[in-house]
Design a protein around this nucleic acid. Structure first.
Length: 327
DNA sequence: AAGTGGCTCAACCGCCCTACC
DNA sequence: GGGTAGGGCGGTTGAGCCACT
């Protein structure tokens, strides 16, 4: 059964011929697509509007990048997928010229198998407990383990707080730096996550916790990230929240100021929470502190710095910090 | 040469969301 | 509020290709 937009008329299905492609390209480049359901008729095609849309988006668009994925693109897909999961359209937005379909196919045909071969669960990116990776992995080489696809990856575990680099053997969740719990676990703890340079950067954070209450303080040199534009309600909804964009404005202030964001999740299953914050501003050093109170058994924090740049995302040296507490 | 199985990827399917009436 | 259309997106399918037997 076809889509309701094309159920009324006879439509052709299957592969597109060069003639059909030519008709569609000619029409859209001169008229634009407008309403897709009217495109086939206007362009003289016996196709469903939806099919035209798909053909244009996935194949005929002039800004598409053809050819195989680069190592950097592969790394980006893996890193973003680890946070967002199978949200191909979202992942594809980080790869100029690539479509969600392309990313999805590449994942299913290539990356997924690579991860499995390395003993990693492609869904969680964690080590499969019973799996034995094909290649032996040195547990001390955390950065290499986490990003096995690129020796030149910009991601390094290089927290300014050296204690975070003291990792325990990676027998449970190898993609994360596991921090041994302190002898007496404090209910509240302030953790300096990282200090980094940024330029028009995003910070993408995900939380996977149980009954966790977290607040994050941003300090920003002589200016501040204004909290007033934040949609606070969306921060409290369970599940992934990549769309709760915090469109902060950076306003110069006379004195450093802190902003606090609170995340709270109710009882129940651990769920991934993610938020994305956009920062506009010049290169400046910014401190980021996280204060958390928790009573869960596991609490993962992941920070990723990226930059929206035409050549791709993710810039910076110590651009990712990952911590895990095992209480 | 023919058959088979695995792989890739373009295209479709079905569901969901939003806008509009 | 309910129905409908259009668009977006993730999952799935299947044609075509290739390597192997």
């Amino acid at each position: 059964m076809g889509h309701h937009c094309c159920s009324k008329q006879k439509v052709k299905r299957g592969l597109w011929s060069p003639e059909e492609d030519e008709k569609l390209v000619k029409y859209i480049t001169t008229h634009g697509h407008g309403c897709w359901s009217s495109v086939p008729k206007q362009a003289g095609l016996q196709r469903c509007g939806k099919s035209c849309r798909l053909r244009w988006i996935n194949y005929l668009r002039p800004d598409l990048k053809r050819g195989s994925f680069s190592a950097q693109e592969e790394r980006i897909i893996i890193d973003v997928h680890r946070i967002l999961g199978n949200r191909w359209a979202q992942i594809a937005k980080h790869l100029p010229g690539r479509t969600d379909n392309e990313v999805k196919n590449f994942w299913n045909s290539c990356i997924k198998k690579k991860l499995i071969a390395q003993g990693l669960d492609p869904k969680t990116h964690n080590l499969i407990p019973t799996a034995r990776p094909n290649n032996s992995i040195n547990s001390a080489n955390i950065s290499q383990f986490h990003h096995p696809h690129s020796s030149t990856t910009p991601f390094t575990i290089s927290s300014p707080n050296k204690s975070f680099e003291t990792a325990t053997p990676m027998d449970m969740n190898p993609p994360l730096v596991t921090v041994p719990p302190p002898p007496t676990l404090p209910l509240h703890e302030t953790i300096p996550i990282s200090t980094f340079q940024y330029q028009d950067a995003n910070v993408l954070m995900s939380f996977k916790d149980q009954n966790c209450h977290t607040s994050i303080d941003f300090t920003h040199g002589s200016s501040s990230l204004d909290q007033t534009n934040m949609s606070s309600s969306s921060f409290h909804q369970p599940g992934f929240m990549d769309d709760c964009m915090w469109a902060s404005t950076v306003e110069p202030l006379e004195a450093p100021r802190q902003n606090e964001v609170e995340f709270q999740q109710g009882q129940g299953q651990a769920q991934p929470l993610a938020c994305k914050m956009d920062f506009d501003g010049p290169n400046e050093e910014k401190g980021l502190e996280m204060e958390s109170s928790y009573n869960s058994s596991t609490f993962d924090i992941e920070l990723m710095e990226s930059a929206l740049m035409p050549s791709g995302i993710f810039c910076g040296g110590s651009s990712i910090e990952q911590l895990q507490w095992d209480c």
